[in-house]
Simulated scan of single mutants.
Amino acid sequence: MRIVDHLTPDGPDKILHVRSVGCDVNIIVGTHDPNGVPFTTVEVLPHVPDDEGTRWMHLGTSNVVVMPVSHDEFPTAPPADPVSTPLQGEAQR
């Protein structure tokens, strides 16, 4: 395994581009939302087709945003009464 530190949000290293078998991976640092909250974007781009003519596809999300956790926005504790807040697809009790 090769470890690459990709921590500088300015300059030529803002985007780390990795070519792999079947896909390219872009890691973009130094972006932020309109409120100034920083985030990192990870994109997985399947080769369509690759150099040998093989078409690749992704299962699941091809883009992921990683951002700091705000306890006001993302509660860590489950709801006080989980029965009163059914999950999507869960039958009412």
Rank of each mutant, 00 (worst) to 15 (best):
R55A: 07
R2K: 12
G11L: 08
T41A: 03
H71L: 13
P79S: 08
D10C: 12
L59A: 12
P38Q: 00
T41P: 05
H71T: 13
D24P: 01
W56R: 12
S84M: 09
T85M: 04
P78I: 07
I28Y: 09
T31I: 14
P12D: 12
V83H: 11
L16D: 02
T85C: 11
M67A: 15
A91Y: 03
I15T: 15
L7K: 09
V25P: 01
F39W: 06
P9W: 01
H58I: 03
V48Q: 15
T31V: 14
D50T: 02
W56T: 04
D81V: 04
P86H: 04
N26E: 14
M1R: 11
G60P: 05
M57R: 11
H47L: 11
L16G: 05
V42K: 08
T31R: 13
V44F: 06
H47Q: 15
G36N: 01
P82K: 01
A77V: 13
P79L: 04
G60T: 13
Q88A: 14
G36A: 03
C23V: 10
N63D: 00
H58E: 05
F74G: 05
P38L: 00
R55F: 15
K14A: 11
D10Y: 05
A91L: 08
R19N: 12
V4A: 09
D13Q: 11
V18R: 07
Q92L: 14
L59G: 09
T76Y: 13
A77K: 11
P46V: 06
A77S: 08
H17I: 01
H58K: 00
L7S: 10
V65E: 01
P46G: 00
R93E: 10
T54V: 13
P49E: 02
P75Q: 07
M57F: 06
Q92V: 06
T41N: 01
V66C: 07
H6N: 07
P78Y: 03
H6W: 07
V64E: 10
G89A: 11
L87G: 02
D50N: 00
G11C: 14
V64Y: 02
E73K: 15
V4P: 03
R2S: 09
L45K: 06
E90V: 12
I3T: 14
A77Y: 02
N63P: 00
G30W: 01
I3C: 12
G89L: 14
H58D: 02
P38H: 09
V21H: 13
P12T: 09
D51G: 05
D5H: 03
R55Q: 08
G53N: 06
V69P: 00
A80D: 11
P86G: 02
T40P: 06
T85W: 03
R2E: 12
V83G: 06
F39H: 03
P79C: 05
N63C: 14
E52S: 12
G53A: 02
V64D: 02
P86S: 12
H17P: 02
L45V: 14
Q92R: 15
P46W: 01
